[in-house]
Amino acid sequence: MLRYVLRRILYAVPILVGVALLTFVLFYASASPQSLARRNLSTRNPTQEQIQQWLKDHGYDKPLSVQFKNHVTGLLVFRFGKSDATGEPIWNRIKQGAGPSGLVASLVFLTGLTAAISFAVAVAYFRGTYVDYFGTFLCVLLMSIVFIVYVIGLQYLLGKILKYGPIAGFQTGIAAWKFVLLPVVIGVLAGLGSETRLFRTFLLDEINQDYVRTARAKGVGERAVLLRHVLKNALIPIITSTVAAIPALILGSLVLENFFGIPGLGSYLIDAINSQDFAVVRAMVYLGSILYIVGLILTDIAYALVDPRVRLE
């Protein structure tokens, strides 16, 4: 098992190097540092010295090859440097924002997964009936609504009209639950349609397998067939598909945190977009990729745990 994990991590190294290269090409090679400096200096008409000083402070004055070396080595050891806009060390903000972001994202992920699996099982249990038909159609309806409309509409409905929770703000510790309640509910509802529909097809693929017939012929009841035999096999594609949920989770934190005033990484990134803070965006792109690759490795491990046919060698 350990060797398997180590090998997976080794595989990830060239991909991380690729990501570092990609971000470098994107941010260093295609944007002129001069204009970057002008944009970020607060004075209206910066003198040439001010610009030079800014470039020096932020490491944009060195030759491209040196910048590349610094960039790649910096990223590999998580040295993200200073924000272009405020000069604040990026790592500090990441440390502060990781907690709230992680809390919201992990709650959305776990609740959403549980809810989607439960609904998919229910719909699959009633397969071929009107429950199935309308459930599937409802899923298509739900997945046709754009995420931000969920956020705006449900915040208005749940927060302002029904007053189920505060509509903005954040506190650390136990008190946080009040502030993450609405964002999590909204995040879960927004992803429910497409996930339920996807998981339903996974379940139905398994329901037609021969081993299900064997289980029924043994006298296993329909509910146990679904919850034990079918679900365990359907978990394999479900697990594989959860990696695809990571970009959606990131998008979720971006919009939800910004909308509910949660001081997480999503809010940080949106501020950075608005102030054209390349250094922060760069760091976030890299961080997101690491998150994705870690997710992939975790998926592989989970996959191996569920499916005995995957040998951990």
């Binding site: 991909i15 990609l22 944007a31 965006v281 792109v285 990729s289 994705y292």
Partner: peptide
């Protein structure tokens, strides 16, 4: 495969933001 593995390792929304900023 390497190209698209690297590209798909960057969560699409982040890549989009970065691309459009640039």
């Amino acid at each position: 495969q390497y190209t698209y593995t690297v590209l798909s390792s960057v969560p699409s929304i982040l890549l989009l933001i970065a691309l459009i900023l640039v």
